[in-house]
Design a protein around this nucleic acid. Sequence first.
DNA 1: CTGAAAGCGCTAACAC
DNA 2: GTGTTAGCGCTTTCAG
Lengths: 351, 351
Amino acid sequence: MKERDTPARRPTTIREVAEAAGVSPTTVSLVANRKEDARISAETRRRVREAIERLGYRPNALAKTLVSGSSRFIGLIADAIATTPFAGQIIHGAQDEAWKHGYALLIANTEGNEQLERDAISMMLEHKVRGILYSTWFHRASEIPESLWEADFVLVNCFAEVAGVRAVVPDEVQGGRAATELLARQGHTRIAFINATTPAPAKDGRLAGYRAALDDAGLAFDPTFTLEAYPDQEGGYGAVSELLDTGATAVYCYNDRMAAGLYDGLREHGVSVPGDLSVVGFDNQEVIAAHVRPPLSTVALPHYDLGAVAVRRLLGLDDSEDGVIKVSCPAVERESVGPPASAGPALHRRP
Amino acid sequence: MKERDTPARRPTTIREVAEAAGVSPTTVSLVANRKEDARISAETRRRVREAIERLGYRPNALAKTLVSGSSRFIGLIADAIATTPFAGQIIHGAQDEAWKHGYALLIANTEGNEQLERDAISMMLEHKVRGILYSTWFHRASEIPESLWEADFVLVNCFAEVAGVRAVVPDEVQGGRAATELLARQGHTRIAFINATTPAPAKDGRLAGYRAALDDAGLAFDPTFTLEAYPDQEGGYGAVSELLDTGATAVYCYNDRMAAGLYDGLREHGVSVPGDLSVVGFDNQEVIAAHVRPPLSTVALPHYDLGAVAVRRLLGLDDSEDGVIKVSCPAVERESVGPPASAGPALHRRP
DNA sequence: CTGAAAGCGCTAACAC
DNA sequence: GTGTTAGCGCTTTCAG
């Protein structure tokens, strides 16, 4: 086992290895980088390898990029790494894809602060990043900070008002459709949708998907089945009475948090899920969806893929034209959906 | 407004600026770095500034570190950036503190994969990071990957079995004490604790804190008040009957998820919170604690501070000796705690 | 098969 | 006040 040496004050350089092995720096470079086309004798190779090992040589990546001209960094700016679990998935996807191509992630969390954002972009520009991924925690239109134009960039989970800017976002319409299909497929015909009150691409998209799925299933869109509530637990809880009044046998909620609040209200009204009412959410927010009672069927936001696809676009790996790419949102089936009850849930309401 | 030029294939260099301004690179360096002690005429300064602006010059941070010898990176390795919201807070705290001192964060998510972990460490070492923060998503003892010893490092949210290794972890005992005090302070004397079944520093620490707080309040520790359950919603839900059988008027749960599950079970038994039973959790997992009904009083895990304090230790800013530093967990009061009911909750149980 | 030399972008000494 | 030189650690011609 190698000795646990305190980190060297100054790391070993290629020249030191060269001296130790009795060869030139060039030779060390050649073997360290596994250039197989280089004609190095087996014996020299061995000596160099041994010296590298013994001295604990780590090539200086910064010096490399200096000579090669191109750095191996990709910057990732997020507006809310700390306050939501979503950014983590974007980072994860971006990192996996970046590493695959030899890039490291330089990340910056701005919590929406514009000054921090400018600083982050400067920092990345000065590190000569290959490009910048600019991401937001919820899907929305976004301003593009002036200095971002100095870099090659792609928007993640947000999009620009100006045309031609590369962006990768979730396909809300397809997602809304998938959510609704989960219900329609079970034979439900009275499917309610509790939309958000807050304007967002998700609001319009998820509604459009709902209508499309209804259409696909040969069901007429009935506006009385579409409610609105603030997209969190409190909103869902507050929408229960109104929902039950519609006589729906199934409901698709704008997001999982809303569904969780709905669960609470439903329980108070003695309505069981999925026995009396089938419920689906949206977002697949693990800590909620997988652990409420019963576990919630939902549609996943493809954050991991958003990050991965964005890196591919940045690197020019997918020869796609400019503009927005929509990534599909897969359904995640758990236990909150069943066939319609013979009688509507209204019968079970407490006096 | 500056023109939106496509990112230059090759960024502007100091030499180009020097030529454009009709001065030497040294002069440009001097004004770009705002060396005020350098004697540069106002006129030259202006010319250089103008050239920098016009060419969109960004100093190459990588070249700088090459000459200065010390890089401006701090590496942060996390085992679960994607699957929990916690890593985000650590990153946030680490970044804020790092930036304050001119460092950028190089992050890597390993999802517990040892190969990825080794790769991450190699990558950071090759980028000559100032040091590495090695973090875990839940507080635990951790193996130290062999190559980590090549760097200056501090453990975050985990600790080593070997002595003398710098680590920063939450103070579980103080946290457990704070949680219990929330209840004792209201006059509760029969305070139950639902601990985790899973061994962890948190399990022992939170129990110790509970006992200490009982002691402080002059309450005897009664083992029948300490239950155990798996630390998630299902566990909390399943512990309800047993809990009610103890006749406790207040309960402190190992974590928020458990408390959320407990809420569900309590509701089914017709036990109201905090009317019949006061509840406190642990972790302050926002999406749960702040949005259940009623909002849950809990104790916050200081992830932000863990990250910030770790950076300070790495940089040697706090002249603390080696070893583990415990960061305190502040209580977060919401609405799940009230005074004891005159009659115990058992009276309210359904037949 | 291997080495010497030049140069990536920048800063630090030291001239002038 | 400002320029020249050297060199950070590395790779890349190009010789030999």
